[in-house]
């Protein structure tokens, strides 16, 4: 939860709401660019950002992104973040059908 995961901004989906799609280790997920929206959103296309719970918190360079991903994989945190994203998708399903493997 406390460690962010790097992702690359691949598409701006809702400019007024500052929403975009980021690709995180091959997984696409909608994220908010609000914390990094100091510059025009289109300038953020292709940039790497550090994503915390669905928000791009900092723009980082590609090298930093790659090294952070390695460290996160080492720590088991990258898998955890990707699982949490998948879990987030399941939250929209009816609770009776979500498997309930939470305990």
């Amino acid at each position: 939860m406390c460690l962010g995961i790097p992702g690359q901004i691949v598409e701006i989906t809702d400019a007024p709401r500052q929403m975009a799609v980021a690709e995180v280790s091959g997984v696409r997920r909608e994220v908010s660019l609000a914390p990094v929206a100091e510059r025009p959103l289109t300038e953020l296309l292709g940039e790497w950002v550090l994503i915390h719970v669905g928000f791009a918190m900092a723009v980082i360079d590609a090298d930093e992104a790659a090294q952070t991903l390695i460290a996160l994989h080492d720590l088991g945190e990258a898998q955890e973040a990707l699982e949490a994203m998948a879990e987030g998708e399941r939250a929209f399903a009816d609770p009776a059908s979500d498997g309930g493997d939470s305990a």
């Binding site: 719970v53 669905g54 987030g88 979500d98 309930g100 939470s102």
Partner: peptide, 20 residues
């Protein structure tokens, strides 16, 4: 815990982001 409350029938869902 929240996990136990969920098992007991409360509608508790894990999300990745508050936006979800």
């Amino acid at each position: 815990s929240l996990g136990q409350a969920k098992a007991d029938g409360a509608d508790i869902r894990m999300v990745y982001s508050p936006l979800d």
